[in-house]
């Protein structure tokens, strides 16, 4: 076994020991439970397997969630990066809109659910827009900071060497702001997951949130716990995908930071 593989295994072990331990404790502690609200883990897992591991059930329960999350989150990313880049480059515009942006950002996305229902109904469009709106802010504000923080010498160089507008944007501004854009995108992902669940409790478009609320209303307590488990695993997998993309795109940044730390 080579060193890299060994390192990977030990990092997986480091990540998994606590969840595994907690599941074991849960399993043992709940095995004799007769409480309606805290059923034995074994029966929760049986219900989980039925609702979330069967391909047909998985598609039915999870696909609507993935759909609204991916569209809403993508909208937030694209609009946040575009608007953030413009505001980051045009300082007077940024100063003029900052107070408004800070106010809007402070409103939790889920608090706007009633307004969004009035404006956009209770279907997929409303849910997508609510996710997009709520997770737009961290992307926007981090992009602004990232763009404003670009090394001025790089911009001077771009002027002397006569880069066109597009080249300056793609070769200097966006890569330079990318570490902060990713920080914003990470926060936005967590927010969009929360809004997704809340938005799905409205209307009948399905998804994890809908399933969760329906299970609770029908006193299907095992199914309810199973849905919570599924939600946790879903969020965790999203985070892993995010980390893989970030590691690839920000490889230079990670290596450079590691080098700076080892030298100081």
């Amino acid at each position: 076994m080579n060193a890299a593989r060994k390192g990977w295994l030990s990092s997986v072990a480091l990540e998994l020991w606590l969840p595994v331990l907690l599941v074991v404790i849960w399993w043992v502690a709940s095995s004799q439970s007769t409480s309606v609200y805290f059923p034995p883990l074994s029966s929760i897992l049986a219900s989980f397997a039925q609702d979330w591991l069967e391909p047909a059930a998985l598609v039915k329960n999870l696909f609507p969630s993935i759909q609204i999350l991916s569209i809403g989150y993508s909208l937030a990313l694209v609009s946040g990066i575009v608007v953030g880049t413009v505001l980051g480059l045009v300082a007077p515009l940024e100063r003029a809109t900052r107070p408004l942006l800070e106010t809007l950002r402070a409103i939790p996305g889920v608090a706007l659910l009633p307004i969004f229902i009035v404006l956009f109904g209770i279907d997929v469009e409303m849910k997508v827009l609510l996710i997009a709106f709520g997770s737009f802010w961290p992307v926007l504000l981090n992009t602004i900071d990232g763009v404003r923080g670009i090394e001025p010498l790089l911009l001077d160089g771009a002027r002397v060497f006569r880069y066109g507008r597009i080249r300056r944007l793609t070769a200097i501004v966006l890569p330079g702001a990318s570490p902060q854009i990713f920080a914003g995108a990470r926060t936005a992902l967590a927010i969009s997951l929360i809004i997704m669940v809340v938005a799905e409790t409205v209307g009948g478009s399905g998804g994890i949130g809908y399933f969760l609320l329906a299970a609770q209303r029908n006193f299907a307590i095992n199914a309810m716990w199973g849905a919570i488990l599924a939600l946790g695993i879903f969020g965790y997998l999203l985070n892993i995908i995010f980390r893989i993309v970030e590691r690839r795109v920000l490889r230079w940044h990670r290596l450079q930071q590691a080098r700076l730390e080892s030298h100081s």
Binding site: L154, F161, R162, Y163, G176, W252, H253
Partner: peptide, 27 residues
């Protein structure tokens, strides 16, 4: 063409050496 004093700030940290040198030409 301009060479700045502070090389650590005038070169793009996210691009390879070759890409740093060729970018003005590509642009």
């Amino acid at each position: 063409a301009l060479v700045f004093q502070d090389y650590s700030r005038s070169l793009m940290p996210w691009a390879s050496v070759a890409r740093n040198v060729e970018l003005p030409l590509r642009a």
